[in-house]
Amino acid sequence: MPEKLIAADGAEQWPPIRLLIDNDTGIDDALALAYLCACDHVKIEALTSTPGNVDVEQVAANNRALLALCGRPEVPVLIGVREPLQIPLVTTPETHGPQGVGHATLPDPMSPVSMDLDAIDYWIEAARANPGELTVLLSAPLTNFALALRREPRLPWLLRKVVIMGGAFYYQGNTTPTAEWNTHVDPHAAKEVFAAYTAAAEQGLDSSKLPIVCSLDTTERFEMQPDFLTRLSIEVGCAESEIVQASDPEGTLSKSSNQLVRYLSDALRFYFEFHRQYDQGYIAHVHDFFAAGVAAGTLDYETRPATVDVETDSPLLFGTTVADFRGLWGKPANAQVVVANDPEAGFAELVQRLGALARKLNENS
């Protein structure tokens, strides 16, 4: 459930969230980041970049450009690892485009100050300096987080909350028949993360601090239709409504008067085209937005405790996540797996927040 609203000076406000984000931007990562920039109660402490959808330098460039567009250029963008723990990096230009954000383009404003900082060291120092205050959103392969847990095994106790977008349980994978993309890119890292939380649970870690896992079982319920962009442009008050149709030539670019609408439309159009190529229809599964809403405390969801592990040996099932909901392994729960959510309410929330941000950016330009 969303975190309760609190009253301040007669107005309702969301409780403040201090957020560390690790992503591999990525079209749905970009949508999620724009959404979080639109949440006034969310303070993004840092954005760490992990290789996945594209290489890590491109991820960082995408993050810097989008933060600048969304009016958050002060957020440090950090780089950690450049490869998975044990296997070669595989990127996915066919899914997200050669630069990771579909047909969208933005100039990279660069921010060399943050590029000298190591992402993993930053996480550990921030968690130690702010025990119980930081929420972590992981919408990329878990490589950086696995290495952070190696260096600081007390992280599960030091962090306020951890949200992971990854895995597929009683659901088809989107990379292999059983494996989800983020986990498949670095299954050894994911296995380490869940093993670390098993060890923490055995040492008495409170269940409220177990990672909340947003797997394909529920993220693919966030199935965006092209008319979302029309609704967004109307919410923004654009001079002309944004119309994206399946009959448009591939690669058609937005002419919207609003730069944020234009950027998101060009990115998401590529995603619609990709899903159609794989016979899923002219739609887009925006996995990372849902995980962002969980981290921000703004979206409805329900969870079940489970013991999660990852297959790293079998060629047939490589990268597959397995959840023991019944305790058959005799191990304590190491995750809270999301089992229900509300996409209709989530998309209404997304339109409202992005619309307000886009209007604000236009006023300030």
Rank of each mutant, 00 (worst) to 15 (best):
L158N: 03
P109T: 05
M115P: 00
G97L: 05
Q99R: 07
E152Q: 11
A168G: 06
D116A: 14
L155Q: 10
A104H: 02
Y122C: 06
M165A: 13
P98T: 14
R154P: 00
G97F: 03
I120Q: 04
L158A: 05
A140I: 08
Y170D: 14
N144I: 02
A126R: 11
N182T: 15
E94Y: 01
W123L: 15
H184M: 08
P131G: 11
L137P: 02
I124L: 09
F169V: 15
G100E: 07
A140C: 15
R154C: 13
Y170A: 15
L147R: 12
T175D: 04
A104G: 04
A119W: 03
R151H: 09
L159I: 13
Y122L: 09
I124T: 08
E125L: 13
L159G: 02
P112Q: 11
R160F: 07
V185C: 06
P177N: 03
H96T: 15
M115T: 13
A127G: 05
R128M: 12
E125A: 15
P107N: 08
A148V: 06
D116I: 14
Y171K: 03
Q99L: 13
W181E: 07
D118M: 11
F169E: 06
I164M: 06
E180M: 07
R151T: 06
M115H: 07
G173L: 04
A168F: 08
P141Q: 12
V163P: 08
A146C: 06
W157S: 09
A146D: 01
P112D: 13
L134Q: 07
A179W: 07
V136N: 00
D121A: 14
A148T: 05
G166K: 01
L117P: 00
K161V: 11
P109F: 05
W123I: 15
L142S: 13
T176Q: 02
N182W: 02
F169Y: 14
T175Y: 05
N182K: 04
M115L: 14
F145L: 14
A168K: 01
L137Y: 01
V136Q: 05
